[in-house]
Design a protein around this nucleic acid. Structure first.
Lengths: 334, 334
DNA sequence: GAATATCCGTGAAACGTTTTATCCCGTGTT
DNA sequence: AACACGGGATAAAACGTTTCACGGATATTC
């Protein structure tokens, strides 16, 4: 009878099974071992309720079956869907997710990466804003929505294509006077190409495209003033608005309606992300849906398959158009 | 010159600083050590870019500065806000969050807990649905929104009070015929007390309160049929509806409006959670706001402060009422 | 000024694994 | 029947920490 009731160790299992320590280890690592031995070990482990100690294992192997997720926040449908899909994809491959929240703070981003380094995760998947992150060579790193020219692979939606698609849709609705609204200095990297795509489309159609960018410090006042002047007061100078984010779409839609502008009769609205909330404005707002599940899956695949080959690649996944209540992959049902 | 470019270890630092291994360890654990020594060590560590190996440390100490978060999903404003706040509260106390997603699957919940056991996290914060989880004694565990009678502390919003408050509000708006709608068999545990509170309030006011519960398998059809019959076809039989979830509120609001029922002129709607999306229906839907940030903070505090005293307590935090665009703590801005 | 207490750095053992080298034993070959 | 061979279990050495017992120096006391 053991005096300590501490968690059983491999040694205990070995003793219980009457085999050596090494043999137990082999069993738990699926290394060929005599059938009878394997059985005895499994039985003993079961009996003792043995669970492998992953810290000891991690120390020895330098692999931890853990991947760090670094995200700016979670309380936004795109990010939370991303986090959820990433976690799912990781768990499916037997990995665990270590979650870090940065609040868009570049310093926090760097701190997180440093923590990961000391924490010995097997890799990092991050959506960051720091202009030049310092990250260990040798520590697998996949970036989302931000392409560093360097050897860091980036997974992203086809933002240019999405912008272009948004343009095509607005035009197909009969819009002649397109407007692009971009909010948040947080939108950098790949997502910033949405405008380029939209602009290219409008240009091709011979339609001039105006755009307005909002800087964080100002709040939404500039937008509202602009809308007051050009859309609400007089007969709308614009009949189709592409917002670079669904959240912005909702806000704008709300504002316009509460000021007597009918959506979509007077002005067509189209957003980007594919968040469910647009479904509540059913049959009204369209959106370009990001393939979040595929992005997550791809990020995990790239991270976990040692592909030094395609390393510095920018992988951009196809988006699609949705009208009303369609949802971001795995969006809430109720 | 060392041949290996592997990560530097304490031994390297010790050598570089000309002190012993134990001294280096002490420096990194804030154990009193001569000022000169401390300085030499810090310097050497800096020079070598040393980072402590938390797996070795975890192995030795059996503490890992990591807490497991077990949640059903993330793509719902309440859960993502919760996850974000929990992660934040943990990081603030120097802990890291290990994230598990269960999809409401009781087996997955148990599997996660078992994984945590082998993973040697310092504690678990979980929002679960499994009727009787088996969890290690000795492994700190805090439940959210579900009170096990046992020695497991539970943190939750004041759901009964919230329901009562919802009733008071509807009545103060002049409602005479209240209705309660409850969706999702997922709503169990504490949140299920919302109805009890609402019912108690109505009863006190002498108003009969009808209720309708939706079971997952059926989809929303039963709701829609009921609404068709009692609210839409004839003059509404109900003039105030309390939905047990904001997501449901949105759905119902949407449905009613698209069928010619004016909200809130014909029917008052009030939800529960405090999600931002209600802000898009500005000046229309009210909601009972859960104090997510406080709940997260409390959960972390209880978990990390060895309080065997208040262990089996049910801690319920006050909710408040919000009208239109107010938001869940830390909800997305755009 | 000697004896005792105090401080603080050192060395070594231990944490629970993985892994390499070793050794045993049974099989097949001539 | 002797020997080489090889499959497969064992023993032991790491992995990078923490911690405890030890001891040398300095400070305190009578």
């Amino acid at each position: 009878m053991k005096k300590k009731s501490a968690a059983p160790t491999m040694k205990d299992v070995a003793q219980e099974a009457g085999v050596s320590l090494g043999t137990v280890s082999k069993v738990f690592n699926n290394i060929p071992v005599g059938e009878d031995y394997r059985h005895r070990v499994r039985e003993a482990a079961e009996k003792l309720g043995y669970q492998i100690n992953s810290y000891a294992r991690g120390l020895k192997t330098n692999r931890t079956q853990t991947v760090a997720l670094i995200l700016p926040l979670l309380h936004h449908p795109f990010f939370s869907a991303l986090a959820e899909q990433l976690t799912g994809a990781l768990m499916q491959r037997g990995y665990r997710a270590l979650l870090f929240i940065t609040n868009f703070d570049p310093d926090a981003e760097q701190r997180c990466i440093d923590m990961v380094r000391q924490n010995k995760a097997d890799g990092i998947i991050a959506l960051t804003y720091h202009p030049e992150l310092r990250v260990d060579e040798g520590l697998p790193f996949v970036s989302i929505d931000r392409h560093f020219g360097t050897s860091i692979p980036c997974v992203s939606a086809d933002n240019f294509g999405g912008g272009y698609l948004a343009g095509e849709k607005l035009i197909s609705f009969g819009c002649k006077k397109p407007l692009f609204l971009r909010s948040g200095s947080h939108v950098v990297g790949e997502p910033d190409k949405r405008f380029a795509g939209f602009d290219a489309c409008c240009r091709n159609a011979g339609l001039p495209c105006e755009s307005l960018t909002l800087h964080d410090a100002d709040g939404f006042t500039p937008f509202f003033e602009f809308l007051d002047k050009h859309v609400i007061r007089k007969k709308p100078s614009f009949d189709g608005i592409f917002c670079n984010t669904d959240s912005l779409t909702l806000l704008i839609c709300d504002y316009l309606r509460s000021h007597g502008v009918r959506v979509p009769e007077d002005v067509q609205l189209i957003g980007f992300d594919g968040i469910k909330s647009l479904g509540t404005e059913r049959y009204v707002c369209s959106t370009i849906v990001q393939p979040v599940a595929e992005m997550a899956q791809m990020a995990v695949d790239v991270l976990l398959t040692d592909s030094s080959a395609q390393s510095s690649a920018l992988i951009s996944l196809p988006v699609h158009y949705a009208y009303g209540g369609t949802t971001l992959d795995g969006e809430a049902d109720v």
